[in-house]
Structure formats: structure tokens, C-alpha cells
Design a protein around this nucleic acid. Structure first.
Lengths: 230, 230
DNA sequence: ACCTGAACACCGTTCAAGT
DNA sequence: ACCTGAACACCGTTCAAGT
């Protein structure tokens, strides 16, 4: 095990790639959650001083930005054999899964996706599909916003749920039924809800509405053309 | 100004109510943002040691939980003269506005609404409206989840946008058009998008779809009964 | 260019002690 | 019950110095 002939130069001068450090950071996130990621802990895990990390990243902020770029799935090429809404659904779920499987990363997604260039590629892909669906420019932009917001909510809520599992077995079942008659009577259904299915339910809901906006089917009272009711 | 006859007992023994401390905490959030709220800063603002705050709240976590309870709007009474979807839209927007106007509070909303009893009241109110709309139990639960996730995403994204205004005048306009042909051509529309309108667009989209699920209008290919497509 | 070590200005939380 | 003061175990970041 302790052979001679070191492949790396000897002495206290290990070198890392940014990617190795990001891997280690993701490991910390997976083990200790979003609050567990600190430069000092990352440094000690790779056997270096906290100061040394500033040779690789300008700041903790820059490291977090790089983490988001790394976790965000790259959009697949457009597939002419699949409908726009099927491709859209698949890709949105892929992003969802990526950030939900990387537990501590959801907070980073929430904090920095607006300025992320990986997220720009996501926007480009989704917009392309929405335009392909036949949506007008304003509709496509608004629909992109709707999908982004819904996706963000799914990721944030599910990540929080995993990081902080039910304090009681079932909070809802224990609520006073006088104050919460409906919620209380739904306690079992509420506890049984499955995250993956719930996420898909809302996504399907939004996509269906968008298909009607796109004119793919009749949609008697679309909210789109009606304007805001006051 | 410096009169005698103090109304509070003299000496270094000021007392606060929890509410006064929460007010002060909200002020700090408004001034310094979510990262600016610390027990030490709150303590110094009210002229006390950080340790003293532990006489009012068990921990910073407990203080944050109390902040969420305080910011969350209380559901209004049911109004038989207004449709379920109008009441639902109005209330969801009220929550949205409450957390977006209280800038640093969005992160707290994201982190703790799952365990918030104020949020339980929100759930009870929304579920009541959804049941009143005629949704089945599973549909009502799923719809509640969809609305919660969408609302969460709206609050998180908008709060982040306010806390961290566009780094450039318009990030999107400056993207390489070879890589971002669609997004680039939408740069103006993208920059002009208005948060309030965008939020309402998606909410109307979801509500419209729910109205069809509820059987209020024909909805040829509802995602609900179809099951998951694979 | 990469790294150490010490320091600075912060955190939340706890202990021991005062009134 | 409420509060102080000191301490503990952390943070991100920076300075000065080494190779």
C-alpha cells in the first residue's frame, strides 16, 4: 500500500481540479445538509487550509454558483418524434429529480438559479418547446415563468421535507378537528401523498392548460385572453 | 424630554413582549435582508445582550417559526357570494404579497411553512374551497399541493429577484445569440415581464385547469383521469 | 500558483452568576 | 423571570509570509 514512486510530486503540495472540489462539496451536502457546507469543512476534508480554497474559488458564493452549474441537467437535443409537451414534462422532471436527489442543493437552486447560465440553457430549451407548441411570445414567456416557479416550489418543498422529516408521525392527524374539519378529515390522504406523483400532477395540470392556450384543444374560458378580472 | 416619573421601573431592566421583538426582527429583515438577521443584532437593537433573547425564544429557530406565524395572512371567512376560484385566487395572492413585501421573510417561508400552524390554516381554507368546487378528495389534496408548490416558487423567486437585482441591466440580452437563439430574441419581453402579472398568469392557468377537473367546463384531455403516461 | 498560520469580525448557544 | 459577561465552537474572509 505505502509504495514509493509517488505519481504526484511529494511534499505538502497537493493540487486539485475545481471539479474534484465540487465533488467533495456535494458529498458534504449529501452528508450534512445545506447548513453543513462550509469552506473550513471542505478544506479539512481535502486536507488543506480554508484559505487555500480561495486559490480555486473567489468566494463561497462562487463555489455555490459552480455547484448549481454542475447539478443542473443539460437539456437534451430536440426530438422531432416526441411531442413538445412530452419533452417538456420529461425535462422538467429531470431537473426536479436532480435537485431533490442532491438534498442540500435545493437551497442553492433557489438562491442562484436566476443568475445561472446553466439555467439560461434550461430557459432556452423550454422556450423553444413552448414556441414550437405554437404559443405567442407573451404566452411563451409567461408560461416559462409559470413552469419555473412551479418547479422551484416543488424542489424547495420536497428538499425541505427530506431535510426535515415529519416532526410527529403525522402532524395533520393530530390537529384539533374543530379548527381543521376539512384538513383533519383528509389526514390520511394528506399523509399518503407521494412527492413524485404530486409534482407530476401539477405539471400535468399546467401542461394541459398550456396545450389549450396553444390551441391544441378547445378551452372554453382560458385565463389568457380574458385579462385580469378585478 | 428627559423627564422624571418613569413609567417603567428604573434600572437596567427593560421588558419586551414577544411581539415587540418580532417587530424589531422584521425591521432588521427589511433593512438587512435574510442574512442580516442575527440574535446579536436583534439584541443590540433593543439594547440587550444576545443571551437575554433566550428568555423569550428557545432558539433562533423558534424565533423564525414565530416570524412565519406572524407574517402569514389569516384566511378570511368563506364568502357565499363569491365563487370558490375567485376566493382562492385572492387569498393565494394575498399570501404572495405578504411574503414578497416582507423581503427577507421568503426564506423563512420556504424553510418552515411545512411545519407552520398558520400554514395549516391556509391549507384548511384552500382545501375547503377545493372541496366546495366539487373536487374529489384525491384531486383536492393534489390540487392543494400544486397550489402550495406554485405559491412557494413565486415567493422564493420574487424574493430572490428583489434581494439580488439584475447583475447587469439585462442578463438575457447579452447572451450569445448562437447558443440562445430563442431566449435572445425574447430578451425584451423577458426583461419587461412583471412579477405580479406573471404570478397571476400561472395561478389563472392552474385555477382554470382545476375548474375543468371540477367539471365546471369540458376539458377534453384532463391529466387527472388519464394517469401517468410513460 | 498554491499553500500555511494568524488574525478579524462575525455567528448561535451555554455556563455561571447576579437581581 | 430576566439579565450580564465570559466563554465555546464555529463561520467567511484577509493579511503577511513562505515555496
Amino acid at each position: 500500500m505505502s509504495s514509493q514512486a509517488p505519481r504526484t510530486p511529494p511534499g505538502p503540495r497537493p493540487r486539485f481540479s475545481q471539479d474534484e472540489l465540487l465533488d467533495e462539496a456535494l458529498t458534504i451536502l449529501a452528508i450534512d445538509g445545506p447548513d453543513g457546507l462550509s469552506l473550513r469543512r471542505l478544506a479539512s476534508r481535502v486536507g488543506v487550509t480554508a484559505r487555500a480554497l480561495y486559490c480555486y474559488f473567489d468566494s463561497k458564493d462562487a463555489l455555490e454558483a459552480a455547484l448549481v452549474e454542475r447539478v443542473m441537467p443539460v437539456p437534451p437535443p430536440l426530438d422531432p418524434d416526441r411531442s413538445w409537451h412530452e419533452q417538456l414534462r420529461t425535462y422538467v422532471m429531470r431537473i426536479h429529480d436532480a435537485f431533490v436527489d442532491q438534498p442540500g442543493a435545493a437551497r442553492l437552486f433557489a438562491a442562484r438559479s436566476a443568475r445561472s447560465t446553466a439555467m439560461d440553457h434550461v430557459r432556452e430549451y423550454l422556450l423553444t418547446l413552448l414556441v414550437q407548441a405554437g404559443l405567442s411570445h407573451p404566452d411563451a414567456i409567461a408560461a416559462l415563468g409559470t413552469l419555473s416557479r412551479y418547479l422551484m416550489g416543488c424542489v424547495v418543498i420536497e428538499a425541505e421535507r427530506r431535510a426535515n422529516p415529519d416532526p410527529d408521525i403525522n402532524r395533520i392527524a393530530v390537529l384539533p378537528s374543530a379548527e381543521f374539519p376539512v384538513l383533519g378529515s383528509f389526514a390520511d390522504e394528506y399523509a399518503a401523498r407521494n412527492s413524485e406523483e404530486s409534482t407530476r400532477y401539477g405539471l400535468d395540470l399546467i401542461v394541459s392548460a398550456l396545450r389549450h392556450v396553444a390551441g391544441e384543444a378547445t378551452y372554453p374560458d382560458s385565463p389568457i385572453k380574458r385579462g385580469r378580472r378585478s
